[in-house]
Design a protein around this nucleic acid. Structure first.
Lengths: 247, 247
DNA sequence: CGAATCCTTGAAACCTGTCAATAGCAGTGG
DNA sequence: CCACTGCTATTGACAGGTTTCAAGGATTCG
């Protein structure tokens, strides 16, 4: 599959630079991180609940997700990851996985050993803090999803998710003309929003009928950002995308 | 109100020692943290979404919660804090609050300046990592709640919340004989589980009828832990309560 | 050009929400 | 000590958003 980066480290640098300017030395240390690149089909587990990982993964292309199952086998997807995200940074300090991570589209990921990441954090404390910050933003996303699933109807919930994806994908340059590729099943999106795939399909139809989305294969277009934002009750504050101004 | 700790720092030390053994020097540094203790009535905001706090708060007694509102005014409570928790440790590295924190029962909290916390993290990196870890556990709790709200019916959802509270309160010595004080309204618990207060009341009645809980004023007793755990589909893994074994 | 997967539809059942009103309880003031 | 006030718990009937079940199309890809 097409991969849109030079070296894996470049993506990470791009992400960190949205928070603060990296010194050349820091950039070099990141570029030199040993990263094992792997291609995955859709629907493959990357780490499973209960595991004790010794590495973290960086999404290079495609989408991954965090999910958990109830004892009845119902699946809740808790967040989606886009290129540049590091889904299981948390395993750096929590030695048991309390969630599973899987590819949710064909994707490319890079594995980085924990020892290398820890070393990086020690040598460049600002990077360590940036990683901490990343995990805090993850938590913020969980909170917003919780608000959606707990208090918003299915229709605004999906609109909200589209808004989030649009903003996050835009931040990594994967949006062209209010359009992006979303090779994710309606059934998977249903698991992400806590509704049934049948109902998700009805929500899709309603969103199309209202002119909020247009779909063409895996491609989704958003003709009216303002209307979508309103429908999704969307406020991007929780994504913490703006460059952090010093405290 | 009754407050069950010697110095505010003692609680924090107790919490950190559940993760790793603190050196005397570290303990002393924590004890010496300037902490401003404040008593709050129930329902008072401690920080609000949009704020740029310069301090974090430590719960000393009672319960606080994290919540967000939809534009329609619906409230979702995202987590409850028990004594020993530091609800907004995240504001140390995320300068805008993306959530609000409020007291949800009469409570006592201690405020600690960010500069003091940052200084502590720098001088004692292990404490910094422990704080990071705390925020990771917070995130894990959000995930589990997301699973509950998204995939479990109201009844098991509430049973699950009771299980969580029982374990967390036990960890700070606030459970006696499978009983603890929960001075929280059914309406608030409804907001925490994403259901209506009317429906929460019906869930309470069902839980009582099934012998899973007994209530007496603000006191809740759990006659059958095993049955409660099963009803709530509860697995404590996500709380990461066991002492971390080195990676 | 199958085979598998994914999308779409319809009708009925179900959980949960809404509305509105009553009961219970704690704290306050006379 | 009792009436009063305000909040919390409880009920009942009904509406509504979602789920379930089941089956028929549409697509994609080897």
């Amino acid at each position: 599959m097409a991969v849109s980066f030079n070296s894996p480290g470049t993506l990470m640098i791009h992400k960190l630079e949205s928070i603060f300017s990296l010194a050349d030395e820091e950039k070099q240390a990141i570029e030199e991180l040993p990263i094992q690149v792997v291609d995955l089909k859709s629907g493959q587990d990357i780490v499973r609940i209960g595991d004790h990982p010794t590495q973290s993964c960086l999404v290079l292309a495609g989408f991954t997700c965090v999910y958990k199952l109830t004892s009845e086998g119902k699946r809740q997807i808790m967040t989606l990851h886009v290129p540049g995200d590091i889904p299981d940074l948390q395993s750096l300090h929590l030695n048991v996985m309390d969630m599973s991570i899987a590819s949710i589209s064909p994707c490319t990921v890079g594995f980085i050993q924990h020892e290398n990441l820890r070393d990086l954090c020690e040598r460049y404390p600002r990077i360590g803090i940036a990683f901490w910050r990343e995990t805090l933003v993850d938590a913020s996303v969980y909170r917003e999803w919780l608000l959606s699933v707990g208090q918003r109807d299915a229709y605004p919930r999906m609109a909200h998710l589209f808004c989030e994806l649009l903003m996050r994908l835009k931040a990594v340059g994967l949006v062209d003309d209010n359009t992006f590729e979303l090779p994710i099943t309606q059934a998977d999106l249903a698991d992400a929003t806590g509704i049934t795939s049948v109902h998700m399909n009805r929500v899709f139809q309603a969103l199309r009928a209202d002119g909020l989305i247009q779909t063409q294969g895996a491609q989704v277009t958003f003709p009216d950002w303002e209307k979508l934002k309103e429908a999704g009750d969307f406020d991007p504050l929780y994504l913490h995308l703006e460059r952090a101004s010093a405290a």
